[in-house]
Design a protein around this nucleic acid. Sequence first.
RNA 1: GGUCCGAUGGCCGAGUGGCUAGGCUCAGCUCUGCAAAAGCUGCUACAGCGGUUCGAAUCCGCUUCGGACCUCCA
Length: 497
Amino acid sequence: MAEFPPLYIQNSLTRKKELFTPLNAPYVGMYVCGPTVYSNVHLGNVRTFLTFDVAYRYLSFLGYQVRYVRNITDVGHLTGDSDDGEDKIGKKARLENLEPMEIVQKYTNDFHDVMRVFNMKSPSIEPSATGHIVEQIEMIKAIVDRGYAYESNGSVYFNVRKYNEDHDYGALSGRKIDDLLNNTRSLDGQDEKNDPLDFALWKKADATHLMKWPSPWSEGFPGWHLECSVMSTKYLGTQFDIHGGGMDLKFPHHECEIAQNTGATGEAHSVRYWMHGNMLTVNGRKMAKSEGNGFTPEELITGNHALLERGYSPMTVRFFMLQGHYASTLDFSNEALQAAEKGLDRLMNAMNSLDTLPTAAIEPNAEVDIAGLGTRCSEAMGDDFNTPILISVLFDAVKLVNSIASDRIHIDATQKDALTTLLGGYVHDVLGIESEAPTAAGSQEDEAGALLDLLVELRGNAKSNKDWGTADTIRDALNGLGISIKDSKDGSTWERD
RNA sequence: GGUCCGAUGGCCGAGUGGCUAGGCUCAGCUCUGCAAAAGCUGCUACAGCGGUUCGAAUCCGCUUCGGACCUCCA
C-alpha cells in the first residue's frame, strides 16, 4: 500500500476532507443503504450504488480487505410518517395481488439484474431486514433500557428530546432540534407519540396487516431506521469505517441511525466516515418516481422513454456518471450521454490497441513517464474518489497510446507492460469499465470475424492494385452493416460501431 | 417559513488565492488515393455588483436565479 498516495474522504459528519485511516487495517468495513424492494430501481438509484461500487473497488485496489455490507429493505418502510402509514411492501403486495415476499423476491431479482448490467460488484454481505427481526427487537430493548424510548399502545417510539439532552440529535444533518420542532408539519394520527419529533422503533400492526412478528410490545413490525443500525452493528461492529448512502437519506434516516446506535450503547458516533452521494437530476430537478422523471435501466437501454432520444448502453451511462464527481449533482441529458458515448469509444479503442502496440528495441522516447501517469491517477482517486480527474489523466494515456500506435512515440517492452497494467487497473478494476461484447454467440462471432478479415484483406489487395472502385465498394458495404474500416500505414483493421 | 447547497466557455463537467483540467461540438492543418481513425493548432469561460489582496473563478458581503432537505425518497 505504501506506493499509493494517501486517501482523503469528504466526511459528511465533520464537513471536512479527512485522511482515511481504517480502524483495523488492512480491514475496512463499509455499510451502504440498499434499496427498498417494492418497485424497480431507476437511474438515480443506480448512481448512488455506482458511487460506492467505485469506492469499494478503489479501496480493494489499494490492497484493503473490504467487507462491504449493503442491505435489502424488505419491511418497515412506511409510505408516510403518520400512524396510518402503510408498509411499502405490504401496499405493493395488495396492489399486485401477491404475497409480500413475492414482491420482495421480484424486485430483489430486478435490483440484482440491474447491478449486474452496470457491472457493479456484489457486496460481501447483503442482509435483509426481515432476516434480522430478533436483533431489531433486542436493540429496541437496549434503547428502552437506557431510557431513550417508550412504549405507547403497543408501539415503541424513540424519545428524541430525552436523547438530545445527553447527545446531539442533528449532528449529521446540521439541524437544531428547536428548528425541527417549529417546522414540523402537523400530521394526522400522531397521537401515540409524546412528541412529533419522535420516530417509531416498533409499530403495532392492525388485523389486516400482512407482515408482522411477535414482540414484547405487540404483533407488529420494526421501524425503517432500525434495520440499518442493527445490521451494520451485527456485521461490522459498533464502530466501523465508512457508511454511505444517498444525500436524501441524511435526514432523517441516517440521523436516526446514529441516535439509535448511540442510544443503544451509550457510545458516541459509531461511524468514522459518512459519505453521501448526490442526486441525479433531470432538467435541474431530482430524478424521483413521484416527479415522473425517472426511468428504468431497461428503458434507458432501449430508448423507450419520452426523455430519451434513443437508447444508451450501460457502460456509456456508467462512464457518463463517472465523469462527474459523486458529491455534485449531475444533470442527465441526451447531449451529455452522446458526448460520453464518443469519449468512451475513444477510450476503449485505445484499450483494444494495447495488445498490438509496437515496441522499439532502440531509442524509446525519454519523455514517456508511465509511472508519472500512475501517480496522477492515484492522486486523483486519493482526493475523495475524484473520478473526473482520473478520467482526464486516462485520456492523456489514451493520447500516448494512439501516438505509439501510429509510430510517433516509441516505448520499450517494459514500458508497454507498465502502460497495459496501468490502464487495465484503472479502467477495468477501479472504474469498472469493460468493453461491451457483441451480442452474437461466440462461434458465430468467430466466423463473422474471419469473414471480415478476409474482406479487409481483399480490399487491401484492391488498394495495392489502385482498384479504388472495388476498395470503396467493400468499405461502403461494411459501413452499411455498422462496421468501420480504419486504414493506417501498416494495413487496415475493422471494428463494429 | 427554516436549514443547507449550487450558478464555470457552444454542451457536459473538474478545479478553491498566482500555474493547460478533461470529454463532446466547431474551424484549420498533417497524414491518406478519397474518407474514417489518429496527431497538431485555434475557439480561453468562471451569474451580477461591491470589498479584501501585489494578485480572486477561487476568500468576504449583498443581489438575482436554481436546487436539495425539513414527509417516503439513492
